[in-house]
Design a protein around this nucleic acid. Sequence first.
DNA 1: CCTAATTCCTATTTACTTGGTAGGATTTAG
DNA 2: CTAAATCCTACCAAGTAAATAGGAATTAGG
Lengths: 149, 149
Amino acid sequence: MISTKGRYALRFLVNLSRLGKDGQTSLKEIAEKEEISIKYLERIAHDLSASGIIQGSQGKGGGYRLVKDSSNLTMWEILSAVDEDLSPVACLKCGESTCNRKDKCPTLPMWEDYGKMTKAYFSSITLSSLSDSSFRNQKNEVDNIEYFI
Amino acid sequence: MISTKGRYALRFLVNLSRLGKDGQTSLKEIAEKEEISIKYLERIAHDLSASGIIQGSQGKGGGYRLVKDSSNLTMWEILSAVDEDLSPVACLKCGESTCNRKDKCPTLPMWEDYGKMTKAYFSSITLSSLSDSSFRNQKNEVDNIEYFI
DNA sequence: CCTAATTCCTATTTACTTGGTAGGATTTAG
DNA sequence: CTAAATCCTACCAAGTAAATAGGAATTAGG
């Protein structure tokens, strides 16, 4: 499941990108608007900054601005920046010592494919498509599937 | 992330289905073969039984057998049986009080679509296709995507 | 009837991860 | 100099997942 960290990061970035090119804002503003603890947002901003997605400027009047062009910044990049690992199963975690059943495991190929699919999906969505609601309005292929169990 | 419960359930069921129609086996056997604690397997078997996927018979010589035809039993059914909720984000959890940002949340449609996609994917894979390795051998569309981060 | 093997049932423990907090150090505009 | 901001490191709390414990109920077979 996608963590709240990932969700908060997205909400933060949507706000940033709506400011337009070179727009800058402080955490305080966003924290209040989005009702997220400023201390928690700090940690998230740090991760995003470490990944080169945003850049902070210190001191009075400082804040964060988007480094990458939002039409070129994918969900996958964003979610990867704040969440350690997006593998669907523990067996595929980065650095996990490979399971000794690997070669004959009947389920592994499925998890791998699912992971690839997930990556492809989130790589296909850019921040700008969320920010300007074009995603919301587009008719999606999967719309005919009933989701709730 | 898919829980170990889900993964164990699958391994359990693959074993069961390989026994063929009306095949039956005890938890002890599978626990030893798969190196899973028998007590933990018990809980998993209980869930699967409650969902009508398997059926147990008590007493000496008892065990579990598959109720549904494995070519008609999907991954989605199995994973749903043992995992509470397969929603990608907390906002979509069954019974979650709906968020008051719901109508204007820019990210919600994406999570919904992702959830639908996940359901569609796991609904398209049957237990038999895993058991007989046909899944492993089939060339998949997503194979050209590099998965690891 | 007795025993061994099995599922069934309920509760508990343990370990890990997530979400969030605390307290300050550093930087900079005005 | 001060206020407002990012930056940094550590810690805490709560929830959840994973696993264990101990036995009750059931049944085949001797």
